[in-house]
Design a protein around this nucleic acid. Structure first.
Length: 426
RNA sequence: GGAGGGAUGGCCGAGCGGUCUAAGGCGGCUGUCUUGAAAACAGCUGUGGCAGCGAUGUCACCGGGGGUUCGAAUCCCUCUCCCUCCGCCA
């Protein structure tokens, strides 16, 4: 959610930015009109309420002073004022709701440095690390490698849960567990994050705080009986940790890392990426979330991206970093970088991390503030998050990068201690 | 799942229709005293909206929402959460 004051004071700038993010129909002008109506109504109803407050006090005095006639006359008068107040309040409630709805549908403004572009074709590759090692055989895609090794089972996954579910077995399951444990350890021990184990099901209000509801409800699994929702990413519970709080001076920055499964219905991407384990309804992810002071936003984004890249570097898998142009920015993001691992078997770059700076957009929505110093007024903080990294795709990249001519897969050096010493999956 | 009890300011806690502009205490800040500190004493100490350059004014907020009333922390309805006991359970 944007600050209405920004729109009020720079309407032309905001309209122009809506063009840049390819959301020309964002209800900016509607919000402006509602804001004006709201303030006008407020001024009127508050004047009436001030009158009612003072006169009600006087009624009390008259009654105690034994002047019930005067009190009754005043009561009748205030009853009429009360009716007027009710009319204004009813109208104000409607206007408030409409304004909130309009504001909820206006996307974040991109940072000044974000390249302008209409869609993903104008995203910018900002750097590439490593070079694909040459193969002296034809590298195979992970679904072939995994099935041949007996560590991936698609058919039984479908039997249990339907399409887009699969099983990892034996050293495949262990490899994923090793990746999770190792990635968490790197972020905790070397990047300064503290680990969080959050609930995997949350209430609607929590999803609203991160912007997943109401706009993206169709991508979420929903338990109707208890009205709980399965999380689509750890970003949801972790960002909401400090919802409706004012963090005391000295709290920031806060870095959290969490491993959770993620659940997505993927109705919007039906038919895409059906092969392999690239896009399932359930996947695992290690997620980094930061709460920082506004002044540190961009520097924190840079270090967040580097923390994610570090995982790829340590795995010795070539990757590239792509900056989203204005037209491809997510709804809530002010700036966003993706990290893509090279997968030689499927012959494509796999998005394994998405690192975003939200500025105060989420903080405003979730009402997360901090007090810069003792006695100072609370300010909205800045939130950031990034995958570090998303699992099935890292698994794909490992299997395809480390595959050998005989169909076996070498275990990356950093993971061997987490694999009970196993150096090769065969 | 059953029965009962609760939710008030940073914390504890009073308040049960009008001086609530929320008692009192703790904590915090400032000042007096002191070489300094402690103690004592005095004052200050929530969040947000709107109007204003500002001083300031005004409104709202006692778990959330709705209602009764001239007037609600206080009465009524409803939801959420917490606690205690019983049952069940990894």
């Amino acid at each position: 959610m944007l600050d209405i004051k920004i729109i009020r004071e720079n309407p032309d700038f905001v309209r122009q930015q809506m063009q840049a993010v390819q959301d020309p129909n964002a209800p900016v002008d509607k919000a402006l009109a509602l804001d004006e109506e709201r303030r006008s109504l407020l001024a009127q109803v508050e004047e009436l309420k001030a009158l009612r407050n003072s006169e009600s006090k006087r009624i009390g005095q008259l009654m105690r002073g034994g002047q019930p006639q005067q009190a009754d006359a005043l009561k009748a008068e205030m009853a009429r004022v009360g009716d007027q107040i009710k009319e204004f309040d009813d109208r104000l409630k409607v206007v408030d709701e409409e304004l909130f709805d309009a504001m909820s549908r206006i996307p974040n403004l991109p940072l000044p440095g974000v390249p302008v572009g209409k869609d993903d074709s104008e995203n910018v590759v900002v750097r590439t690390w490593g070079a694909p090692a040459p193969f002296d055989f034809q590298p195979r895609p992970h679904w072939e490698i995994g099935e041949a090794l007996g560590i991936l089972d698609f058919e039984r996954g479908v039997k249990l849960s339907g399409s887009r579910f699969y099983l990892l077995k034996g050293l495949g399951a262990r490899l994923q567990r090793a990746l999770i444990a190792w990635m968490l350890d790197v972020h905790i021990n070397e990047h300064g994050y503290s680990e969080v184990y959050p609930p995997y099901v949350v209430r609607a209000q929590t999803l609203f705080g991160t912007g997943n509801l109401p706009k993206f409800a169709e991508n979420l699994y929903h338990d109707v009986e208890d009205d709980l929702w399965l999380i689509p990413t750890a970003e949801v519970p972790v960002t909401n940790l400090y919802r409706d709080e004012i963090l005391p001076p000295g709290s920031l920055p806060i870095y959290h890392v969490a491993y959770t499964p993620c659940f997505r219905r993927e109705k919007m991407s039906a038919g895409k990426d059906v092969r392999g384990i690239k896009r399932g309804h359930q996947f695992d992810k290690v997620e980094m979330v930061k709460f920082v002071e506004p002044e540190q936003g961009e520097a924190e984004l840079a270090s967040l991206v580097d923390n994610a890249e570090d995982i790829a570097r340590r795995l010795e898998i070539p990757y590239r970093v792509v900056q989203m142009c204005t037209g491809d920015l997510a709804f809530a993001a002010a700036a966003k970088y993706d990290i893509e691992l090279w997968a030689p078997g499927c012959n494509e770059w796999l998005e394994v991390s998405s690192c975003s700076l939200f500025a105060d957009f989420q903080a405003r929505r979730a009402n997360i503030r901090y007090r810069p110093e003792e006695g100072a007024r609370p300010r909205y903080l800045y939130t950031l998050n990034g995958s570090g990294l998303a699992l099935p795709r890292v698994l794909i990249a490992v299997l395809e990068t480390y595959q050998q001519a005989d169909g076996s897969v070498r275990v990356p050096d950093v993971l061997v201690p987490y694999m009970g010493g196993a150096e090769v999956i065969r």
